[in-house]
């Protein structure tokens, strides 16, 4: 009898020594254009919501490791979700969706008898977009692309201009208004988001949330490897009768060039509060500059006309 899959995982996780596999060869290198020789395999997350048990260990582990402040004891009444959204003070957010849809749509016995109930749980996080609007619009260069292909805000550079906030197509970033110790209690004023635990991943460690996740709903690893795993996983989940199952953000040709942190969902993205077809709006910047140029020209023309028309008060 050989190892039941996963039992090494248990012990190694328990011992905190679970290794992060790094493949020999990889298609997706992380931004060789900027990192050249130092470019490494692009690392990311595959969040498989079909095995999420909604324990929120990811939320707590994230806050513990990254010293993210507690942000209010607000009871939402929205199922078991009292975190409500990603933001400056919640870098992981577990969504809870109660549905009166059978657990499995193929009704093969596994439909919970008289209770056609389904309770979806999904841990959301910054998508670490291939084309990240937040990074593109940041005027200070506070947001940068790491050698692992992740997107990180440098807290010592961000001046809180807030431009990245409306730029993010997922509403991930937000400004922290809580008092900051280093500013004598004045609002912190900077934006914060998931760093993909840069201070851990840089040293080959697993991010805190993935490390804490008991069911491996959060999987960290080289992006191609994750995409491969996700495709197989989807086949199985669909075969198991979860008709609505789909991958979200795995496609390099989508509106943001694919997510560095993508998902397996059991229902429409919007059900979980995710945009159905997110787009990196900065793709149109060229057009916008041209539009602005045209408008500038029109302005010049208009003003010019104002001077040419009529002779009155022309001059002395």
């Amino acid at each position: 009898m050989q190892h039941p899959p996963g039992s090494p995982r248990a012990c190694e996780r328990a011992a905190g020594t679970r290794p992060v596999s790094t493949p020999a060869r990889t298609e997706t290198e992380a931004w060789p254009q900027s990192y050249g020789a130092e470019a490494q395999p692009r690392m990311g997350f595959f969040t498989d919501t079909s095995v999420c048990i909604g324990c929120k260990a990811c939320e707590v582990a994230c806050k513990e490791w990254n010293l993210v402040p507690e942000d209010g004891l607000v009871w939402s009444g929205e199922s078991f979700d009292n975190t409500s959204a990603l933001g400056a003070n919640s870098w992981r957010h577990v969504a809870f969706v109660e549905q009166t849809t059978p657990l499995r749509v193929d009704g093969d016995g596994a439909d919970g008898g008289d209770d056609p109930l389904r309770w979806l749980m999904s841990s959301d996080v910054c998508k670490h977009c291939t084309e990240s609007a937040c990074l593109n619009v940041c005027p200070t260069g506070a947001i940068f692309r790491t050698e692992l292909g992740t997107v990180v805000v440098q807290e010592d550079v961000c001046n809180g201009c807030g431009y990245c906030v409306p730029a993010c197509p997922f509403g991930v970033l937000d400004r922290r208004e809580l008092p900051a110790p280093d500013r004598g209690g004045r609002p912190d004023g900077r934006v914060w988001k998931c760093t993909l635990c840069y201070d851990r991943t840089r040293d080959g460690m697993t991010p805190a949330c993935a490390q804490a996740c008991p069911t491996e709903s959060i999987q960290y690893g080289p992006l191609d490897e994750l995409r491969g795993r996700a495709a197989e996983r989807l086949d199985k989940v669909v075969a198991d009768g979860f008709a609505g199952a789909r991958l979200y953000g795995d496609d390099p040709n989508d509106g943001v060039g694919g997510f560095g942190a993508f998902f397996l969902l059991l229902d429409e993205p919007e059900t979980y509060g995710l945009p159905p077809a997110p787009r990196d709006s900065t793709r149109h910047l060229g057009g916008m500059w041209r539009g602005a140029a045209a408008a500038g020209a029109a302005l010049l023309a208009g003003l010019g006309a104002a001077f040419l028309m009529g002779r009155d008060g022309g001059g002395a």
Binding site: L103, A110, G112, D115, L117, W119
Partner: peptide
């Protein structure tokens, strides 16, 4: 129907 039920293949 708890988080455990949500994970089960069959809830009674």
């Amino acid at each position: 129907f708890s988080r455990t039920s949500a994970m089960a293949t069959n809830f009674v």
